[in-house]
Simulated assay, not measured.
Amino acid sequence: MDRTYRHQRRIYDATRAFYLLGRDHLIKHLAPPSGGTVLEIACGTGRNLQHIARRYPQTTLYGFDISEEMLSSARAKLGDRAALAYGDACEFDSKALFGVPHFDRIIFSYSLSMIPDWTRALDQALDHLATDGSLHVVDFGRQHHLPTLARRGLNAWLGRFHVTPRHVLPGLLHDMATTRGLALHYNDLHGTYAQHAIMGANPAC
């Protein structure tokens, strides 16, 4: 990952703004409690945490990523506004990383489609969720309402960057919510180009 992002990180935010749709929608519906904790898993350059800091100034922010190159951009952007660390989404201990065992809000933003064992990453995140907390996900959607050629072209292009849209995400989240006794709010965005989900005891819609 460091080899991939060593140079890309410098143009990442400017270029991804055109096709990582729905990130601001996720932030708008985050609704963390005043003084609450927010963790972004695979936080990348810190773009989302920076926007969350501006919109919810009373929150305490945390983020980790498996790329030290991306973390260097995040640290330059966020300074001491967020606690950042190196970590693997599929195997992490937030108490060891940050001294915090659970979080009020946990975010996956266009990261599940890049994590090979993404179902394990979801389980790990839910294990670190506070009792009244919620998990927030935005990523590439099922795309079933897009024209066939557009869908094929998009997926072929994404594959060049080791990105695999998780078309079965809605069903998996439903099963996870049922197993854990949580509620799920799911919706498609931008004609099913993207998908957004909130899971928790009382997910804000």
Results as ranks from 00 to 15, higher is better:
154 L>K: 14
99 G>V: 09
143 Q>P: 02
84 L>C: 08
165 P>M: 11
114 M>F: 02
74 A>M: 01
146 L>Y: 07
64 F>V: 02
72 S>W: 08
104 D>V: 08
157 W>I: 02
142 R>E: 03
174 H>S: 11
172 L>F: 15
106 I>G: 00
107 I>L: 15
77 K>H: 14
99 G>F: 01
159 G>H: 09
154 L>W: 12
131 T>R: 13
169 L>W: 04
106 I>Q: 01
166 R>L: 04
117 D>K: 14
161 F>Y: 15
155 N>S: 05
134 S>T: 12
99 G>L: 09
147 P>L: 12
172 L>Y: 15
169 L>K: 04
130 A>G: 10
117 D>V: 04
147 P>K: 12
137 V>M: 02
66 I>T: 09
98 F>W: 03
99 G>P: 05
80 D>I: 08
83 A>S: 11
118 W>H: 13
113 S>H: 08
93 D>W: 05
163 V>R: 03
114 M>S: 09
148 T>P: 08
142 R>S: 05
77 K>C: 12
92 F>M: 12
78 L>G: 02
83 A>L: 11
93 D>H: 10
96 A>S: 12
107 I>M: 10
140 F>H: 14
113 S>V: 09
115 I>Q: 03
78 L>E: 05
138 V>G: 11
96 A>E: 15
64 F>H: 09
150 A>F: 13
117 D>N: 14
85 A>H: 00
172 L>A: 08
70 M>G: 02
175 D>P: 00
87 G>L: 00
104 D>S: 07
123 D>C: 05
58 Q>W: 03
77 K>T: 13
170 P>A: 11
75 R>H: 07
135 L>S: 07
130 A>L: 04
168 V>K: 09
145 H>R: 14
131 T>I: 11
98 F>L: 08
153 G>P: 07
131 T>A: 13
154 L>P: 02
145 H>N: 13
103 F>M: 02
102 H>D: 06
96 A>F: 04
